Amino acid sequence: MHILRHFDDIAPALKGAVYAIGNFDGVHIGHQQVIARTAAIAKELGAPTGVLMFEPHPRQYFFPDQPFFRLMSFRAKTRTLGEIGVDQIAALPFDKRMATMEAEDFVRNVLVEGLGAAHVVVGYDFCFGKGRRGDGALLRRMGEELGFGVTIVDEVKKGGDTYSSTRIRELLAKGDPRGAADLLGHWWTIETHVIKGDQRGRTIGFPTANLSLEGHLEPAFGVYAVKVEIEDGPHKGTYDGVANVGRRPTFDKEDVLLEVHIFGFEGDIYGAHLAVSFIDFLRPEQKFDGLESLKAQIAADSDKARTLLAAL
């Protein structure tokens, strides 16, 4: 899979793809349907299937002080897109140049002259260009003028829920990872590296892998049944576990951390890259009056998580 980080001076061999345009945060079922439509058109035209997205997310550019909101890291997103059949990704920098580009200039300079798009596929509510003035109607009009095709995909719903990244964030904030998974089409997963913690878990019989949530959405604070994939090294594999997201009030901590206890695991994984998938919410985070009550609750949480995970 090719990843383009600019649209200027693209090699001729990389031009002519059919592009789905959007941010595709989470690569949820709605996104997957847009990309499936893109792949079908690309097959008809004998062209590569492409995705055009922006990095960083435009919301991050315009509102840099807002809390982290991304459902998926760039690394995870590109890998997932590759797994569902995308041949080429144009991950264009969203900077001042892009933020102030008029919609018509985006079409001419980026889509036509830069990427040489043969066809573009967008969602029903897609807007682009300075002030979000461009829309599907403008794309269609300019496509007819400049010689590229345009497909607009209608809203996709599951029951009363629209497949949307915003709705998935709301479900995770409420502690509903299964509801989020129903819209995602896969478990919501945080991918990051294991960092050094205070190693207190070892002293109470429940060693944990500590992971920073920086750059990721913070779900509801509390305890979750999780699946853990260690992606490299001698311990490579998938394991069951229980995780806590929060500030660890029993120990008067303030920083937010993801702590994962992997069942039956022994080994040093500091620095390893982990993918932690959230399966079920067990209980909210709480403060305990001592280590013994904390240990008893972790044991109970672990038993419940084992039962839930065994039923998958």
Rank of each mutant, 00 (worst) to 15 (best):
D161F: 06
T151V: 10
W187E: 11
V122K: 04
G175L: 08
V150D: 00
G185H: 04
D198Q: 15
G129T: 07
C127N: 07
V120H: 03
S164K: 15
L183I: 14
V121Y: 02
G114H: 04
M98L: 13
F206N: 08
C127A: 10
R167H: 07
G179M: 10
G116C: 03
G201N: 06
A180H: 05
A173R: 13
K157P: 02
G201P: 02
G205P: 11
G149T: 13
R97S: 12
V112R: 15
G205L: 06
A209W: 01
S165A: 13
T162L: 12
V150I: 12
G197F: 08
R167D: 02
T192N: 13
V122P: 01
A209G: 11
T100I: 11
H186K: 14
G149K: 14
R133W: 00
F126Y: 12
D198N: 13
A181K: 14
L139P: 04
A137T: 08
R200G: 03
I168P: 15
E113L: 12
A118Q: 08
G179K: 15
T189G: 13
T203N: 03
G159Y: 04
R133F: 06
S164I: 07
V121I: 14
E155Y: 02
K196G: 15
G116A: 07
I204E: 03
D135V: 08
L139R: 09
A103I: 04
G129K: 02
E104Q: 07
